[in-house]
Simulated scan of single mutants.
Amino acid sequence: MTVLASAESLLMHKLASLILAACLLLPANVHAWGFTGHEYIGATAYEYLTPQARRWVDSHLQRLDETSLASATTWADRVRGTEEGRFLGPLHFANIPPDEQQIDMQRHCPNRRCVVGAAMNALDVMFDPQANPTAQADELRKFSHWITDLHQPLHLGFARDRGGNDTYVTVDGERINLHRVWDSLIIERKELPAPAQLAAQNPLPESTEDWYEALQLWAEEANHLAREYAYADLEPGDELDSAYLIQAKQVVKEQLTRSAQRMAMIINAAAAANQ
């Protein structure tokens, strides 16, 4: 009986280890925009691409066995729980202190270890005609995620509550953290137009000459939206009323659109730089 019990204990231990390993390979429960939001942005961005840029994107993503730009946007979340995913963890967000209005790359993003710096690192490779094509493809895939994360306001939120993850509110009687409200709940409750329709209704704005400066400005824009609309005057435990949710839906739609447009503008420019 002792031998049997020992063998049984060993078996249970191995089973528990396998279950734990499997769980570590699963994506985390909360991602910026959720998979649906990321894929929607990627699909919409593809609608904005020039024919040249589409060929550039398609050929690069084939190297990584990614079926589309939409699917590529979720990669950085798909690998959460892996060693690479854990290394990339700090690159999904950036924090600007409540008493500051601008991002200081030296203090808030040292060594580019934040979402803004990660996007900049991707640009370094994407715009380099001499870059290895596979490395360029990898950075393109990463960039498609960083640019979408950068537009979710609470990914530019405050460190004190981990971008809303530690602030719990109530929606229709359900206790939920504020980050998830903006990541997924708003999108789940909002009917979005088809990507082609959204792109047709919202032409690309004028391009810029400095994409690095633009990334910082967009991060500060997202932080401003977090302050004004996500955090607003909320206290932990507050019930989010209809006025809050209506305003949040409008902000989310605008940020989804901006994210798709800006992703497309940068990819268009990168593809042109590689010709």
Rank of each mutant, 00 (worst) to 15 (best):
Q201F: 03
E239W: 06
H151M: 08
M263E: 09
P90K: 06
R258G: 07
A118H: 13
A122L: 08
L18S: 12
G164C: 08
A21P: 03
G85K: 10
R113F: 05
R113C: 06
A243K: 11
K190V: 10
L198G: 01
S259E: 05
A76D: 11
L234H: 11
L10R: 12
N177D: 10
D241E: 11
V115Y: 04
T167V: 11
V115A: 05
Q201Y: 01
N132M: 08
G85A: 09
A43T: 01
G164T: 09
H38W: 04
A118F: 05
A219V: 00
P236M: 07
R55L: 13
A94M: 10
A137V: 07
T67L: 12
L24Y: 12
I176A: 06
Q102M: 01
D149V: 02
A21G: 14
E39T: 12
A271V: 01
R63T: 12
E39G: 10
N132E: 14
L256A: 04
A272E: 15
L185T: 08
A119W: 00
N29M: 14
S184F: 10
A72Q: 02
P195I: 01
L178G: 06
N111R: 15
D128V: 05
A131D: 01
A43K: 04
A222H: 01
L150I: 00
P27F: 05
D238H: 02
A269V: 02
N223D: 09
G157C: 10
S68G: 04
R160I: 13
D172L: 12
L192G: 05
L88F: 09
D77Y: 05
S17G: 13
Q247Y: 02
D183R: 07
A260K: 02
S259G: 14
Q52H: 11
K190P: 00
L204M: 08
P236C: 07
D128N: 15
D65K: 11
F93T: 09
Q247N: 12
G42F: 02
N121A: 11
G89S: 13
E8Q: 15
